[in-house]
Amino acid sequence: MSMLSVRDLVVTYATRAGPVRAVDGVDLDIPAGSITGLVGESGCGKSTLGRALMGVLPEAGKIAGGQIVFEGADLVALSPTARRAIAWRRLSFIPQTAMNALDPVQRLRAQMLEVLVERGGLGKAEALARASELFHLVGLDPIRLSDYPHQFSGGMRQRASIALALALEPALVIADEPVTALDVIVQRQVLDVMRNLQARLGLAMILVTHDIAVVAYACDRVAVMYAGRIVEAGPVADVLENPLHPYTMGLTHAFPDLYGDDMTLVPIDGTPPSLLHPPAGCRFAARCPFVQPRCADEPPVMTGDHQAACWRVDEAAELRALAATPATWLPK
């Protein structure tokens, strides 16, 4: 059962050059109690999708179509007030720059209390107890509640933002690149905190990242985004071990591995298309080594649990074999 299902979501930004279709027809299902990784190149629309789900798009952005069905209610159709009520209680968002989003002139205790008392309606004493509990939960000493953010290291600030995001016991947490700026050891510690919380509290999480190793480490499911669309989605094991989409195949060969044989890394030549005038057919066509004439005309669609938006999904096994040879990816 999906707790969140997104259907044909379109988000545009108004710019001087015209509307940028940053999210353009996204379908996504988030099962309850799972961690879903959202990966993709810079600018493919990951943050935009996360913000649209939470209802915190920047001023220039708006939802131009589609549905976001969360626990049975279509958030897009709700009034802003009704929507905010749901968003505050049941959803939670950790923005991309969360580390720096904490208020620098307020002690963390005050920042926690603000959320717990004003939004959560708790009494002061109750809220204090809950704040300590939350700090404990993310592996911070509750004594540090009386510190200012600048007294924390980057990893500790990241933990504090996670504690804040969990304050009202959300059902779904959307974390935008929560570990990108962190050192590997701290990254691992923060990922462990998130995995433990998910297991203990049974919450669902969307973890935005561009590192597929992070997805492999921490996620149950993964959605691969490319130029405003989800091009492949499914359980992590299936997607990473048996990718169906040529873009995902390319990604798995573009990363160095800490162990394993001496492989040659293979870049994916070219750059993603402009979201101002996206191509009509498959968006990966210009970079895809397996492109066929029909790819350019008609956009492929996705079906099934492990799914990919590619016309040649049925030939995936053969394409994977081809994709494993570097020569396949040489610029045309």
């Binding site: 590997v184 701290v186 691992r188 590192d211 190793a213 990473l240 591995d257």
Partner: peptide
């Protein structure tokens, strides 16, 4: 440091890191 590096495979070591505290 080595234990903390995630690898792009589903099966990997997820044991507690052999380190305490933080840089501070």
């Amino acid at each position: 440091l080595v234990a903390a590096v995630p690898v792009p495979h589903v099966t990997q070591d997820r044991a507690q890191l052999p380190i305490r505290g933080s840089l501070s």
